[in-house]
């Protein structure tokens, strides 16, 4: 049971971070379907940093450096989306899809290059970071507390405040709802959209890092992040682009995902004799069903996906 809670919380943390990332991007008016790719790149940045960190550094420094690396790699990668969508009016779905393909490809090519450079026989795409990862964990009895759970909670609260209580949030949402209105009161729509995309890159990258450090101590980048970026999109929609709802949805989806890892510990579930694949599938099936009910009166930002062109008014 404790294990279920632990896994639920850590998966929920990932989903919260990434879904909030999507939320910021979409509130600014840019659909970010490339979260999956951004997660991979964020994870890559973090994993490589952990790999090369010297042992014996204080835990706090390790956490800081690794998080920074993920956040920055995520942001740089998200700029690809930002530039294409904001500056060049590219189709956001198309570019997002490209990001999803590009992320894992870059990760595999880089990791393999690094591994091969180290030893010619090593052609795997795996990064090992067992030691450094321990910095994130605090054992409380048999419960393994992960600092990222706290970080995700803090970011959730911060997002709520930023979106609804600050000047930045007000302006960001205005750009996603009615960019012409924002422009007419002197808000730089392009800047705000870049800000939205960069925040989504930062949070997506961080989410990627949390995901690969959740259970294991090495990561094979050929696997990408196994659809978590897409799951986060579902969380965002299910949460109707609102931070608090996103938090609750993430807990729900995190639990389903966790079940597939630990259902063996529950006699009732084992007795059902369902293959573990079913639990993997459940969040997707549920989101599909939920989408049917929420899509008719969706609160999606009105101008999302529409490139803003100053010339057209």
């Amino acid at each position: 049971m404790l294990l279920l809670i632990q896994y639920t919380l850590i998966f929920a943390s990932v989903l919260i971070l990434v879904a909030l990332g999507g939320c910021f991007s979409e509130h600014s008016g840019v659909i970010n379907i490339g979260l999956e790719g951004i997660m991979v790149i964020g994870a890559l940045g973090g994993a490589l940093t952990m790999r090369y960190l010297t042992a014996g550094m204080p835990a706090f420094v390790v956490i800081l450096l690794v998080v920074l690396a993920s956040v920055i790699s995520g942001m740089i990668f998200s700029l690809l989306l930002g530039v294409a969508a904001i500056k060049f009016n590219a189709d956001q779905t198309l570019v997002g899809t490209a990001l999803n393909l590009l992320g894992p490809a870059i990760a595999v090519v880089l990791v393999r290059a690094v591994n091969t450079a180290e030893s010619v026989d090593n052609v795997s795409s795996t990064v090992v970071y067992g030691q450094a990862k321990k910095a994130f964990l605090v054992n409380m009895g048999s419960f393994e507390f992960n600092w990222f759970m706290l970080i995700a909670l803090l970011i959730l609260i911060a997002s709520y405040i930023v979106l609804y209580k600050t000047r930045f949030g007000l302006r960001l949402c205005a750009c996603g709802e009615h960019p012409q209105a924002a422009d007419s009161v002197g808000i730089n729509v392009y800047k705000m959209r870049y800000a939205g995309v960069l925040i989504s890159g930062a949070l997506g990258g961080l989410g990627g890092l949390v995901y690969i450090t959740a259970g294991v101590s090495e990561w094979k980048f050929e696997n990408g992040v196994a659809g978590f970026g897409f799951l986060a999109l579902a969380v965002m929609i299910f949460g109707q682009w609102r931070p608090i709802n996103i938090g609750l949805t993430a807990l729900l989806f995190g639990m389903f995902r966790a079940l597939s890892n630990v259902y063996m510990g529950f006699d009732a579930l084992v007795a059902l004799k369902l293959p573990s694949t079913i639990y993997n599938m459940l969040p997707y099936i549920i989101s599909l069903i939920v989408l049917v009910f929420v899509s008719k009166k969706s609160r999606a930002p009105k101008a999302e996906g529409v490139p803003y062109d100053k010339g057209l008014r």
Partner: peptide, 22 residues
């Protein structure tokens, strides 16, 4: 293979999709 991996092609084609947006 002693220097590179075959996924370099995936990278190129992913980048081509990206460019198609332009």
């Amino acid at each position: 293979k002693t220097m590179y991996c075959s996924q370099i092609s995936d990278l190129i084609s992913a980048f081509i999709i990206y460019l198609c947006g332009f």
